[in-house]
């Protein structure tokens, strides 16, 4: 019986038979459809996904004409802070543009959070100004709402992660609501400074990392940014496939935020005025790549079908069908990209 090389969700290699791959595809599709209450992929789409997974060649590509564009999460930091190449960030922007062929990139600080950036904004804006003078492609500024940073002892509000185990539910909720106000103020302040420095857009990355209140902070900040700076693009990126209910009662536009999957998250981002939505589907390290990518494509197809704005799927380590691995293997990365674009109808990555 012939076997095909693929990977597990942790990146390790594994050989699977055709039957095993088809079975995992079906299980992944059904898991997403059940959790999200969304349509399953059609049999034709599952057959095509099987074909993508088992295609010969180390890497695969989309059909000619189906290419999409890319945005980034701390894009210019990948070379400077992460790879530790001694390089000024506006120079990393030019390397991204001229050497790597990026469609856009975002500049971010080492502490990729708006709260931290606010205090050093006078040193962040010159980086954007230099990048804008020398770069041709769109350059965004990116950071996370990161609501947890507003808790004591580093921040001004009580720590809801300490209050919840003590059954102080009302106090925990009040602390989160107060933190939202601080976060929105900081995000809008940084966005205004970056707009004045020439930024093409602001990237609200990983919204919901601290739960539903964190997601709300991103939505309210988006509203205010578009109100004050209508020409500044906003990319609203999610933190996960499912918004955690750390608060549990927070609503936006009449919808409870906790528990929303990507096809409903995108509608709130649209309502707030975001120009691009970054969809996230988490990778399960114990399951195979066929299971993970089938599940991801099912969620993404529902999200792009619901969306009026472009959807850029997060395809980094541990999301978007990509293994949770420090160095994502290119064989499954290219297969994930092809599946997300051709079946999931992603507008970008």
């Amino acid at each position: 019986m012939s076997e095909f090389f693929t990977r597990m969700g942790d990146g390790s290699g594994v050989y699977m038979t055709a039957e095993e791959i088809r079975e995992d595809i079906l299980k992944g599709v059904k898991d997403a459809a059940d959790r999200g209450k969304i349509p399953e992929l059609t049999q034709e789409e599952m057959d095509y996904l099987y074909k993508i997974i088992t295609m010969p060649g180390n890497i695969v590509g989309v059909e000619r004409g189906r290419e999409v564009v890319s945005t980034s999460d701390s894009g210019s930091c990948k070379m400077t802070y992460h790879a530790n190449i001694a390089m000024e960030r506006s120079m990393a922007v030019l390397v991204s543009e001229k050497v790597l062929g990026a469609d856009s990139v975002d500049i971010g600080n080492m502490d990729y959070s708006y709260k931290a950036v606010k205090q050093i904004i006078h040193n962040e804006t010159p980086v954007m100004e230099l990048a804008q003078l020398n770069a041709v492609m769109p350059v965004l500024y990116g950071s996370m709402p990161n609501l947890g940073l507003y808790t004591k002892p580093d921040g001004p509000v009580e720590n809801w992660s300490e209050l919840l185990p003590l059954a102080k539910i009302d106090e925990a909720r009040a602390a989160q609501e107060e933190a939202v106000e601080h976060a929105v103020r900081d995000i809008v302040f940084v966005a205004g400074e970056m707009y004045a420095a020439g930024a093409d857009g602001i990237n609200l990355d990983t919204c919901g990392a601290s739960g539903d209140a964190d997601f709300l902070a991103g939505l309210l900040a988006t509203e205010k940014i578009k109100e004050k700076y209508p020409d500044l693009g906003v990319e609203f990126g999610a933190a996960g496939e499912f918004v955690l209910g750390m608060h549990g009662k927070i609503e936006y536009d009449g919808a409870k935020i906790a528990g929303l999957y990507p096809h409903k998250q995108v509608k709130l981002a649209e309502k707030a005025g975001a120009n691009i939505f970054g969809a996230v589907v988490n990778t399960n390290t114990n399951m195979s790549f066929p299971w993970n990518i089938a599940r991801t494509v099912t969620f993404v197809k529902a999200c792009t079908a619901a969306a009026e704005i472009p959807v850029h799927v997060n395809v980094g380590m541990g999301v978007g069908g990509i293994p949770m691995s420090e160095i994502p293997p290119i064989d499954v990365v290219t297969r994930a990209d092809k599946a997300l674009i051709e079946i999931g109808k992603a507008d970008g990555l």
């Binding site: 290419e67 999409v68 564009v69 890319s70 945005t71 543009e97 001229k98 790597l100 062929g101 990026a102 469609d103 856009s104 041709v136 492609m137 769109p138 965004l140 093409d200 857009g201 693009g233 990319e235 120009n275 691009i276 472009p310 507008d347 970008g348």
Partner: peptide, 16 residues
């Protein structure tokens, strides 16, 4: 799309 090697930057501008 490969950015300024092609027209990726222009397409991204219209999305943003």
């Amino acid at each position: 799309m490969s950015g300024i090697r092609t027209a990726g930057d222009l397409v991204l501008r219209m999305q943003l």
